[in-house]
Protein backbone atom coordinates (compact mmCIF):
# COMPACT_ATOMS: atom_id res chain seq x y z
CA UNK A 1 0.00 0.00 0.00
CA UNK A 2 1.30 3.46 -0.87
CA UNK A 3 2.37 5.79 1.92
CA UNK A 4 -0.41 8.30 1.11
CA UNK A 5 -3.02 5.66 1.86
CA UNK A 6 -1.40 4.89 5.20
CA UNK A 7 -1.02 8.54 6.21
CA UNK A 8 -4.72 9.01 5.52
CA UNK A 9 -5.39 6.46 8.23
CA UNK A 10 -2.76 7.81 10.59
CA UNK A 11 -5.09 10.24 12.39
CA UNK A 12 -7.74 7.60 13.01
CA UNK A 13 -5.04 5.17 14.14
CA UNK A 14 -3.60 7.62 16.65
CA UNK A 15 -7.11 8.45 17.85
CA UNK A 16 -7.68 4.75 18.48
CA UNK A 17 -10.44 4.58 15.89
CA UNK A 18 -9.37 1.87 13.43
CA UNK A 19 -9.99 -1.88 13.72
CA UNK A 20 -7.28 -4.00 15.40
CA UNK A 21 -6.30 -5.79 12.16
CA UNK A 22 -5.74 -2.54 10.30
CA UNK A 23 -3.85 -1.11 13.28
CA UNK A 24 -1.43 -4.06 13.24
CA UNK A 25 -0.82 -3.60 9.49
CA UNK A 26 -0.20 0.11 10.00
CA UNK A 27 2.23 -0.55 12.86
CA UNK A 28 4.12 -2.91 10.56
CA UNK A 29 4.31 -0.20 7.90
CA UNK A 30 5.56 2.37 10.43
CA UNK A 31 8.39 0.03 11.41
CA UNK A 32 9.43 -0.17 7.77
CA UNK A 33 8.81 3.40 6.52
CA UNK A 34 10.88 6.22 8.07
CA UNK A 35 8.84 9.00 6.43
CA UNK A 36 5.53 7.71 7.75
CA UNK A 37 7.09 7.03 11.16
CA UNK A 38 8.32 10.64 11.33
CA UNK A 39 4.86 11.84 10.32
CA UNK A 40 3.32 9.69 13.06
CA UNK A 41 5.73 11.10 15.66
CA UNK A 42 4.88 14.64 14.56
CA UNK A 43 1.17 13.89 14.87
CA UNK A 44 1.57 12.36 18.32
CA UNK A 45 3.59 15.39 19.40
CA UNK A 46 0.86 17.66 18.12
CA UNK A 47 -1.83 15.69 19.92
CA UNK A 48 0.11 15.94 23.18
CA UNK A 49 0.88 19.61 22.61
CA UNK A 50 -2.81 20.40 22.01
CA UNK A 51 -3.83 18.37 25.04
CA UNK A 52 -1.39 20.25 27.26
CA UNK A 53 -2.27 23.63 25.76
CA UNK A 54 -6.02 23.03 25.99
CA UNK A 55 -5.84 22.78 29.77
CA UNK A 56 -5.82 26.52 30.15
CA UNK A 57 -8.79 28.00 31.99
CA UNK A 58 -9.55 27.24 35.62
CA UNK A 59 -12.89 28.28 37.13
CA UNK A 60 -12.96 30.60 40.08
CA UNK A 61 -13.68 28.54 43.26
CA UNK A 62 -16.33 31.10 44.24
CA UNK A 63 -18.06 30.48 40.91
CA UNK A 64 -18.00 26.74 41.49
CA UNK A 65 -19.47 27.19 44.97
CA UNK A 66 -22.20 29.40 43.52
CA UNK A 67 -23.19 26.73 41.00
CA UNK A 68 -23.17 24.03 43.67
CA UNK A 69 -25.46 26.09 45.87
CA UNK A 70 -27.74 26.83 42.97
CA UNK A 71 -28.06 23.13 42.08
CA UNK A 72 -28.74 22.17 45.68
CA UNK A 73 -31.52 24.77 45.85
CA UNK A 74 -33.13 23.89 42.54
CA UNK A 75 -32.72 20.19 42.12
CA UNK A 76 -36.02 18.61 41.20
CA UNK A 77 -34.85 15.08 41.83
CA UNK A 78 -32.10 13.60 43.86
CA UNK A 79 -31.18 10.34 45.41
CA UNK A 80 -32.80 9.55 48.70
CA UNK A 81 -29.68 9.09 50.76
CA UNK A 82 -27.03 11.41 49.40
CA UNK A 83 -25.36 12.88 52.41
CA UNK A 84 -26.92 15.28 54.85
CA UNK A 85 -29.51 16.61 52.47
CA UNK A 86 -30.83 13.09 51.95
CA UNK A 87 -31.67 12.89 55.62
CA UNK A 88 -33.27 16.29 55.42
CA UNK A 89 -35.50 14.83 52.73
CA UNK A 90 -36.33 11.87 54.96
CA UNK A 91 -37.28 14.36 57.65
CA UNK A 92 -39.51 16.15 55.14
CA UNK A 93 -41.21 12.89 54.17
CA UNK A 94 -41.71 12.03 57.82
CA UNK A 95 -43.23 15.46 58.43
CA UNK A 96 -45.62 15.16 55.50
CA UNK A 97 -46.54 11.62 56.55
CA UNK A 98 -47.17 12.81 60.11
CA UNK A 99 -49.33 15.70 58.87
CA UNK A 100 -51.35 13.29 56.68
CA UNK A 101 -51.74 10.79 59.53
CA UNK A 102 -52.81 13.39 62.06
CA UNK A 103 -55.14 14.95 59.51
CA UNK A 104 -56.65 11.55 58.71
CA UNK A 105 -57.07 10.64 62.37
CA UNK A 106 -58.65 14.01 63.08
CA UNK A 107 -61.03 13.56 60.15
CA UNK A 108 -62.07 10.10 61.35
CA UNK A 109 -62.45 11.31 64.93
CA UNK A 110 -64.65 14.20 63.85
CA UNK A 111 -66.67 11.91 61.60
CA UNK A 112 -67.08 9.30 64.33
CA UNK A 113 -67.79 12.01 66.86
CA UNK A 114 -70.51 13.32 64.60
CA UNK A 115 -71.85 9.79 64.17
CA UNK A 116 -72.01 9.40 67.92
CA UNK A 117 -73.78 12.76 68.33
CA UNK A 118 -76.29 11.72 65.72
CA UNK A 119 -76.91 8.37 67.42
CA UNK A 120 -77.40 9.86 70.89
CA UNK A 121 -79.67 12.51 69.48
CA UNK A 122 -81.73 9.80 67.74
CA UNK A 123 -82.08 7.89 71.01
CA UNK A 124 -83.03 11.05 72.90
CA UNK A 125 -85.75 11.57 70.29
CA UNK A 126 -86.99 8.03 70.90
CA UNK A 127 -86.95 8.64 74.64
CA UNK A 128 -88.97 11.84 74.19
CA UNK A 129 -91.36 10.02 71.87
CA UNK A 130 -91.81 7.34 74.55
CA UNK A 131 -92.57 10.02 77.17
CA UNK A 132 -95.11 11.63 74.88
CA UNK A 133 -96.73 8.37 73.82
CA UNK A 134 -100.11 7.32 75.11
CA UNK A 135 -98.78 3.77 75.10
CA UNK A 136 -95.20 4.22 76.15
CA UNK A 137 -94.50 0.54 76.59
CA UNK A 138 -95.45 -2.64 74.80
CA UNK A 139 -95.03 -4.81 77.84
CA UNK A 140 -96.27 -3.33 81.05
CA UNK A 141 -94.76 -4.99 84.00
CA UNK A 142 -92.79 -4.18 87.02
CA UNK A 143 -91.59 -7.75 87.10
CA UNK A 144 -88.26 -8.31 85.46
CA UNK A 145 -89.20 -11.98 84.99
CA UNK A 146 -92.02 -10.87 82.74
CA UNK A 147 -90.23 -8.19 80.81
CA UNK A 148 -87.11 -10.14 79.92
CA UNK A 149 -88.92 -13.17 78.37
CA UNK A 150 -91.20 -10.83 76.48
CA UNK A 151 -88.23 -9.72 74.35
CA UNK A 152 -87.31 -13.29 73.45
CA UNK A 153 -87.80 -13.76 69.70
CA UNK A 154 -88.26 -10.04 69.16
CA UNK A 155 -84.64 -9.02 69.47
CA UNK A 156 -81.52 -10.98 68.46
CA UNK A 157 -80.00 -11.04 71.97
CA UNK A 158 -80.92 -11.32 75.62
CA UNK A 159 -79.91 -9.36 78.70
CA UNK A 160 -80.28 -9.45 82.46
CA UNK A 161 -82.38 -7.09 84.53
CA UNK A 162 -81.49 -6.12 88.10
CA UNK A 163 -83.55 -6.81 91.17
CA UNK A 164 -84.99 -3.41 92.00
CA UNK A 165 -86.46 -4.34 95.35
CA UNK A 166 -85.24 -1.86 97.92
CA UNK A 167 -84.14 0.65 95.29
CA UNK A 168 -86.07 3.84 94.40
CA UNK A 169 -86.36 2.62 90.79
CA UNK A 170 -89.41 0.96 89.34
CA UNK A 171 -89.43 -0.98 86.08
CA UNK A 172 -92.34 0.30 84.02
CA UNK A 173 -92.01 -1.99 81.05
CA UNK A 174 -90.32 -2.33 77.69
CA UNK A 175 -90.69 -1.96 73.92
CA UNK A 176 -88.78 -2.91 70.84
CA UNK A 177 -86.67 -0.09 69.51
CA UNK A 178 -84.76 0.26 66.30
CA UNK A 179 -81.41 1.75 65.51
CA UNK A 180 -80.19 1.77 61.90
CA UNK A 181 -82.81 -0.84 61.03
CA UNK A 182 -81.56 -3.17 63.81
CA UNK A 183 -83.87 -4.14 66.63
CA UNK A 184 -82.96 -3.54 70.25
CA UNK A 185 -84.67 -3.19 73.61
CA UNK A 186 -85.91 -0.05 75.26
CA UNK A 187 -86.60 -0.43 78.98
CA UNK A 188 -88.46 2.24 80.85
CA UNK A 189 -87.77 2.87 84.52
CA UNK A 190 -89.43 5.34 86.82
CA UNK A 191 -87.84 7.23 89.61
CA UNK A 192 -90.51 9.24 91.42
CA UNK A 193 -91.91 11.37 88.55
CA UNK A 194 -88.89 10.93 86.29
CA UNK A 195 -88.78 8.45 83.49
CA UNK A 196 -85.54 6.89 82.39
CA UNK A 197 -85.05 4.95 79.14
CA UNK A 198 -82.38 2.33 78.78
CA UNK A 199 -81.68 1.28 75.21
CA UNK A 200 -79.80 -1.94 74.56
CA UNK A 201 -78.33 -2.79 71.14
CA UNK A 202 -75.78 -5.21 69.86
CA UNK A 203 -72.29 -3.75 69.88
CA UNK A 204 -71.89 -4.43 66.12
CA UNK A 205 -74.57 -1.85 65.40
CA UNK A 206 -72.65 0.81 67.28
CA UNK A 207 -69.54 1.24 65.08
CA UNK A 208 -69.99 4.99 65.18
CA UNK A 209 -69.66 5.09 68.96
CA UNK A 210 -66.04 5.70 69.87
CA UNK A 211 -66.05 5.61 73.64
CA UNK A 212 -66.85 2.46 75.56
CA UNK A 213 -68.32 4.54 78.33
CA UNK A 214 -69.48 8.15 78.32
CA UNK A 215 -71.25 10.61 80.54
CA UNK A 216 -72.88 13.50 78.88
CA UNK A 217 -75.95 15.59 78.56
CA UNK A 218 -77.96 15.97 75.40
CA UNK A 219 -80.83 18.46 75.20
CA UNK A 220 -80.62 18.73 79.02
CA UNK A 221 -81.12 14.96 79.40
CA UNK A 222 -78.49 13.01 81.27
CA UNK A 223 -76.95 10.34 79.12
CA UNK A 224 -74.87 7.35 80.17
CA UNK A 225 -73.43 4.81 77.79
CA UNK A 226 -71.50 1.66 78.48
CA UNK A 227 -70.69 -1.69 76.98
CA UNK A 228 -71.20 -5.08 78.50
CA UNK A 229 -71.17 -8.63 77.13
CA UNK A 230 -71.21 -7.49 73.51
CA UNK A 231 -74.12 -5.15 74.15
CA UNK A 232 -74.19 -1.39 74.12
CA UNK A 233 -76.29 0.36 76.77
CA UNK A 234 -77.65 3.90 76.46
CA UNK A 235 -79.36 5.42 79.45
CA UNK A 236 -81.30 8.66 78.94
CA UNK A 237 -83.36 10.53 81.50
CA UNK A 238 -84.10 13.79 83.23
CA UNK A 239 -83.33 12.49 86.74
CA UNK A 240 -80.24 13.68 88.59
CA UNK A 241 -76.82 12.47 87.45
CA UNK A 242 -76.43 10.58 90.74
CA UNK A 243 -79.71 8.72 90.18
CA UNK A 244 -78.67 7.72 86.67
CA UNK A 245 -75.30 6.54 87.97
CA UNK A 246 -77.07 4.47 90.62
CA UNK A 247 -79.36 2.80 88.08
CA UNK A 248 -76.50 2.17 85.70
CA UNK A 249 -74.58 0.48 88.54
CA UNK A 250 -77.56 -1.80 89.20
CA UNK A 251 -77.82 -2.73 85.52
CA UNK A 252 -74.08 -3.34 85.25
CA UNK A 253 -74.18 -5.53 88.36
CA UNK A 254 -77.06 -7.59 86.85
CA UNK A 255 -74.84 -8.08 83.75
Amino acid sequence: MACELWTEKLDAYLDGEIPAGEARALQQHLRECATCAAEAVAKVQQKLAVKAAAQRFVPDPAFRARIERSIAARRPSATLFSGGRGWLRVFEIATVAAVLLIGGALFLTIRRGRGEERLISELVDQHVATLASANPVDVISTDRHTVKPWFAGKIPFTFNLPELEGSPFVLVGGRVSYLSQSPGAELIFRLRQHQISVFIFREEELTEVREKQTLRTALSFEVRTWRHNGLGYFMIGDASPQDLDKLSELLKAAG
Binding site: A54, Q55, F57, P59, I71
Partner: peptide, 20 residues
Protein backbone atom coordinates in the same frame (compact mmCIF):
# COMPACT_ATOMS: atom_id res chain seq x y z
CA UNK B 1 -27.01 8.76 40.50
CA UNK B 2 -28.05 12.31 41.05
CA UNK B 3 -27.47 15.24 38.75
CA UNK B 4 -24.68 16.49 41.01
CA UNK B 5 -22.92 13.15 40.94
CA UNK B 6 -22.86 13.18 37.15
CA UNK B 7 -22.43 16.87 36.40
CA UNK B 8 -20.12 18.24 39.07
CA UNK B 9 -17.05 16.11 38.19
CA UNK B 10 -17.25 17.66 34.71
CA UNK B 11 -17.40 21.20 36.06
CA UNK B 12 -13.76 22.21 35.54
CA UNK B 13 -13.60 20.72 32.07
CA UNK B 14 -16.91 22.25 31.03
CA UNK B 15 -15.70 25.61 32.23
CA UNK B 16 -12.43 25.21 30.36
CA UNK B 17 -14.30 24.27 27.19
CA UNK B 18 -16.75 27.15 27.63
CA UNK B 19 -13.84 29.57 28.07
CA UNK B 20 -12.22 28.26 24.89
Amino acid sequence: GSFEELAMPLFDRLYNFAHW
